[in-house]
């Protein structure tokens, strides 16, 4: 673990080897903390911008919620059949 930029600001120091410290004393029952939405402590205090990027970047993470129209033919046929039944 490295200590980055300990010089200037009081906070710019890397965290210790505190691994999201569940106190050693009470490790027996599985900690229910996993259960809720508590944000975990990061193993580092600071990291440079370029290390924040996920591998693969942010492209292709989101897509449109509607289907592209290739299945539409099938649906159209089905719909027409249903409508025919209706008219009988």
């Amino acid at each position: 673990m490295s200590a980055q930029g300990t010089s200037t600001s009081t906070t710019k120091a890397a965290a210790s080897d505190n691994k999201n410290g569940e106190p050693a004393t009470e490790q027996k029952p599985a900690a229910p903390l996993e259960e809720d939405d508590e944000f975990e402590d990061f193993p580092l205090e600071d990291w440079p911008e370029e290390e924040s990027q996920l591998p693969g970047g942010n492209a292709h993470l989101w897509e449109e919620s509607w289907d592209d129209d290739d299945t539409n033919e099938e649906f159209a046929v089905q719909l027409r059949e249903e409508l025919k039944k209706l008219q009988k």
Binding site: A3, N18, P23
Partner: peptide, 11 residues
């Protein structure tokens, strides 16, 4: 500072 925090760790 982090070295001191280590020295005062309960783990």
């Amino acid at each position: 500072g982090w070295g001191i925090a280590d020295a005062l760790s309960p783990i």
